[in-house]
Design a protein around this nucleic acid. Sequence first.
DNA 1: CGGGATATTGAAGATTTTCAAATCAAGTGG
DNA 2: CCACTTGATTTGAAAATCTTCAATATCCCG
Lengths: 243, 243
Amino acid sequence: MDNALVARLSHGAALDEADRTRLRALSSDPALVPGRTELARQGDRPQHVHVVLDGVACRTRLTSEGRRAILGLVLPGDVCGLHAFVLRRMDHAISTLSACRVLRVPAAAIGEVMAASPRVARALWWSTLVDESVSREWLVGAGQRRADQRMAHLFCELHARLRVVGRADGTSFALPLTQEELGEALGLSTVHAHRARQALRGAGLVVARGGTITIPNLAALQGFAGFEPDYLHLDERRLEEVG
Amino acid sequence: MDNALVARLSHGAALDEADRTRLRALSSDPALVPGRTELARQGDRPQHVHVVLDGVACRTRLTSEGRRAILGLVLPGDVCGLHAFVLRRMDHAISTLSACRVLRVPAAAIGEVMAASPRVARALWWSTLVDESVSREWLVGAGQRRADQRMAHLFCELHARLRVVGRADGTSFALPLTQEELGEALGLSTVHAHRARQALRGAGLVVARGGTITIPNLAALQGFAGFEPDYLHLDERRLEEVG
DNA sequence: CGGGATATTGAAGATTTTCAAATCAAGTGG
DNA sequence: CCACTTGATTTGAAAATCTTCAATATCCCG
């Protein structure tokens, strides 16, 4: 398995070996960042793009009442902050949840690699646009799905996304989130997030032990959640080869 | 007041007169589309970018249970479908709500105008990225705000966005949505959407009559909603001039 | 081992959905 | 002009879902 950035972007465009080498060159010297650390602050004018190579981070916004909403999870191979090239200021913050290995790539280096390879440029845009598609799906879930279905849907999504970067096998993946963070991500109170997860456990759809989620029957969980993976755009590369 | 596209994009980058002329050239021959008509279907490979010049459209996704979620409202001056240049397939549909005047701009024409003017290119990207920021704010609201606050927040947002394109005065704007559509946008049942709006009316925060929303005291409504307009990025042009 | 954070549980109360019925508004054809 | 139809709004009431508060249990780190 290649590094997470290469693995992920390979799903966004048909990269050649030179492209992979360019991406690996960006991936030297990642920083080790502890959990619960802000990588970028809301209102910042970022000079860097962040790439998570290991661990879990998140996009967050604070409400006027001082509560925190988690707008999206940033998994290994995910790129954050590309949009700040255009939208000068961060309209949300990026924080680590667990300890992470993170690249801080200077804006100029991103510009160079995008100029050098239109395929990498496409893959990077693909990556941000998929993030947006995921965010839209979270919005659908927030409006239409019950707490337990929403939790199930999140687990299905994480499994699919982590699988692509080799961080999940057929049935399990690590999920280093507290119930509070899970609640912030799903728009639920901590207590109700707990109960929703427990309901999934009770129904035998999910086993949660020691920070690891196991899904004994993926099809059953997907059915319960109404999970349809199209929104993850995981097949974009194939489409490009065909079309 | 210039046409809505020019008015809106002028907030995204410091356009010069040549840029405005380019945009006006795109704006000839808009189509008249009735309400409740699909402009682009989920799963499509779009060949066109849509620009709404008048009326209200929306982005929607269907859930596996067959319900419709409205993911965002498309107002005069808004551009849809730019992301399909990269993400071959539409991951959501675009439908009109009211009757609309709509431009269908061929992908090639967009490519040309972006190549001809980096300022227009930046303004177009700005426009899509602001849509995403708005979508994130809807996600915050869905998770954290009560129905009445969410409704109030939507009204504040629509007022701010419509003002920019000359479709709202200091206190009023047209809102041609049914309660059902309002509910789909806010993630509420039709009945509860109705009651939330009625609560705002009862509190004197909003007057709703004949498809028109009037806000007697904008500061009061904004306070009630916890509305902070940063996420609309309405000052990007100024930032660029300064920075 | 101690202490702080996290998880778990119960119960009351708030919010929201659902269902069903009544009212209203606008257009259509007689 | 009126009866009729259709779609939208409005209201009530019961049930489902979710939050809050408070207490207890468990885990993990130093």
